[in-house]
Write a protein that binds this DNA or RNA. Sequence first.
DNA 1: AATTACTCCAACCGCGCTTTA
DNA 2: ATAAAGCGCGGTTGGAGTAAT
Length: 247
Amino acid sequence: MEHLGVRKGAWTEEEDILLTKCIEKFGVGKWSRVPLMAGLRRCHKSCRLRWLNYLKPDIKRGEFKEDEVDLIIKLHKLLGNRWSLIAGRLPGRTANDVKNYWNSHLSKRISMQKGEQSQIKSMETTAIATTKVIRPQPRTFSPNSKWLSGTAGSSTIQTELQKMPNNAMMGSPQEESALWWKSLLGDGEEEEEEEDTWWSKSGKFGLEVELPQIFGVEEMEKMEKKEEEGLGEWDNMLLDFDLLSEP
DNA sequence: AATTACTCCAACCGCGCTTTA
DNA sequence: ATAAAGCGCGGTTGGAGTAAT
């Protein structure tokens, strides 16, 4: 394809139509075949990006609302530059949108606020721990994943959890993944299971928690709606954890 | 009115992880 | 077991639009 001259730069309306029709006909996936099937002189990466960031039907356009901005700030505080995860909590917003919005609108605002805070902090005598950014790991584990080295068989979090006995995290070869789960769920040292933690018969993991009142009703409703739409288990856990971690 | 500086966002690029052959 | 292909992510850039001079 390269010798035919792969187009770069802004997409034309005609290209958008071709790509949209192709996706409508064949569905999403197999991006490497999309340029050929759509009749586009674009690389598959460019096609994927155009679809995910612009053409996908459920993408929300226009200004970020106040509650969306609040959520971005809170999640960024917890997750750092994990734009796709943050965007996953904002229905209709893409990771690119969130990233751009952060870089152009929020990063300055936040750094200014941090400046003010550090002025206040310098006047205080008590040391306050810096925010610990949670580094999430992949929601699925392939058999060869570094989190499951030496583990055979099914690869989803859920099935990995099913393998784990009620209370104890077993030693090798699952030790590494177990350690990770522990580090996520607690400080990794406390052996006692949290009262609110439960293991269902199906092996599903859950945290029954009283959600702190840091979100408004509107946000909570949105999250519940999103939940119904079928969020990944990781996303749900992450949010629970976010909320728990919030002071 | 012309030029320069700045902002913002769509798109590109490289990297790392996963999947497939 | 390994190499190649596929995929997704985050950082960065180019350029169009706007504000300032």
